[in-house]
Design a protein around this nucleic acid. Sequence first.
DNA 1: GCTTGACTTGGAGCTGGCTCTAAGTGTTAA
DNA 2: TTAACACTTAGAGCCAGCTCCAAGTCAAGC
Lengths: 125, 125
Amino acid sequence: MTIAQVSKKYDITQDTLRYYERIGLIPAVCRNKSGIRNYSDEDCRWVEFIKCMRSAGLAIEVLIEYVALFKQGDSTIDVRKELLIEQRKQLINKLEDMKETLSRLDRKIESYEHCVVKKEKLLIG
Amino acid sequence: MTIAQVSKKYDITQDTLRYYERIGLIPAVCRNKSGIRNYSDEDCRWVEFIKCMRSAGLAIEVLIEYVALFKQGDSTIDVRKELLIEQRKQLINKLEDMKETLSRLDRKIESYEHCVVKKEKLLIG
DNA sequence: GCTTGACTTGGAGCTGGCTCTAAGTGTTAA
DNA sequence: TTAACACTTAGAGCCAGCTCCAAGTCAAGC
């Protein structure tokens, strides 16, 4: 796949794809003889995985570390697993916080309902 | 309450508190004759509300709008409610995305479990 | 051969959201 | 009364994470 196709498929700009590769957020993509990127299926899976993790708020720094460990091979399997577990923990905490905020927002909206009712009562009665 | 107390209570730097006030993220706080901020209970509730919403990822821009509408009085009640409902919608979507990412992370960690088991089998057998 | 156009690079620029600084004012304690 | 300190302001600086740009390379079509 060309960079243009990957960009379209995953809705990530070409600039961002090149940027991610430059900083090591995805492993180096193979090129043809004239230096043009040709994304393999595995490259695509990386792009998709990183996009997903980024959108959930995992830091670029952490993901770069994960990719670097991956490149070092099987000896880093345990470390990678620990890294993922730590990220999961943080994600769960964030989810909890957001759920609380959501219910607070619900209550706030609820109180606006009462407001409107009062206003209507005033208008009617 | 002084800015120092509010800063401590809500774990927000004094700089950030002043910044929030400057850009209209919280309504103007009353000052004594020499210009020093004195946070009322209502000011504190604003600080806490804004902190909570910010931590869930609501944009500063949107919250500034909410505060501006609030300052305009009761005529903006309906608009404010709509604004909150829209933000709730977005928050729910974000939560859903994050939940999916979380279960993906779970599966990934799961697959690392298998990895370790294989490695152990190799070591043992 | 020449133009067009899709790609390449390194580096500069931008946005959001703080965070720090310099210069100044006011209160308090010795 | 003078030193120390907590506060004030406007504006510069910083960081993450892109996004844009200039200059260059290459392949395809006229």
